[in-house]
């Protein structure tokens, strides 16, 4: 009874800041300006402009997720094999940037990548060709990878250190070489970490509008930017909410697919 009482503030919090806003998004998304029920807001995702933005968002966030996975896995393996004292230091270095404001970090990349920015000045000094990636999708991917990489490293690291070293030894003992051991034992056993890493990178990457605003200029519209503009510029809350709902359904659908895929690969539930 007492314990339930302790949860009360959280329930209030969840109701005020999670449930009610969600309900309002659903309400706005499913009504028109006169307040009558409509599916038109949801259906507007099929317009050419919106589909293009969604497609670009999916493409860029998939690529960032893949790059994060490829960068994070080796790093997590190195961390997992290190002594604890060293590990905590490196994890600290890794997490340190996260203590700085997200916007600030992304703005810093803008300054670094600008046509006359820090990076290009350095390249120019060495008479190297200038880097022209600001305001291109590449800059957005860079921003996504930079910002979301820790969310990939930590879950993979956590799942790797849970593997009993003797399980790895057992595979070697039974004749597997190091590559076979990695593919058949280490990777499947770290799948839960990879799955949560992928979710934790893919979902924010898919919905971001800050990174694309700052590093992509105003020309590249991701689905996040489209929704943001509906709210801030067009003032059409109904359409913005409708698109948000579609995006939410899309993410839930993807997570279910991922979980099912994991079920097959792993043989047990997530």
């Amino acid at each position: 009874m007492n314990k339930k009482l302790l949860a009360f503030p959280y329930i209030v919090w969840a109701a005020v800041f999670i449930l009610i806003p969600l309900f309002m998004v659903a309400y706005y998304g499913l009504t028109d300006k006169n307040g009558s029920f409509t599916l038109a807001n949801l259906a507007s995702i099929t317009t050419k402009e919106h589909l293009k933005a969604l497609w670009l968002s999916v493409l860029l966030s998939l690529m960032s997720t893949l790059i994060c996975l490829l960068l994070a896995y080796p790093l997590a393996m190195i961390l997992a094999h290190m002594k604890v004292t060293k590990t905590s230091f490196i994890v600290l270095i890794f997490i340190l940037p996260m203590w700085m404001n997200f916007l600030l970090r992304t703005l810093a990349w803008q300054t670094l990548l600008e046509k006359t920015g820090v990076l290009n000045n350095i390249l120019h000094f060495f008479h190297l060709p200038a880097l022209e990636i600001i305001n291109t999708p590449y800059a957005i991917i860079l921003g996504m990878v930079y910002n979301f990489l820790p969310f990939m490293v930590l879950p993979i690291y956590n799942s790797l250190i849970k593997i009993d070293p003797n399980v790895i030894h057992a595979a070697r003992d039974l004749g597997a070489n190091s590559v076979q051991t990695f593919l058949k034992i280490t990777m499947p056993l770290s799948a839960p970490g990879m799955i949560s890493g992928i979710t934790m990178v893919f979902v924010p990457a898919l919905t971001t509008f800050v990174i694309s605003n700052l590093l992509g200029g105003s020309k590249i519209l991701l689905i996040g930017n489209v929704i943001e503009q509906e709210f801030t510029q067009a003032g059409n809350w109904h359409l913005g909410s409708g698109l948000s709902l579609v995006l939410m359904l899309f993410i839930i659908f993807n997570m279910v697919i991922t979980a099912l895929f994991d079920l097959e690969g792993e043989g047990n539930a997530l």
Partner: peptide, 17 residues
């Protein structure tokens, strides 16, 4: 993996997946 012997480990070390 090149040795003609096999080990039974403490706490079994089975492949849980």
């Amino acid at each position: 993996n090149k040795r003609q012997l096999n080990t039974v480990f403490q706490k079994y070390a089975l492949f849980t997946h």
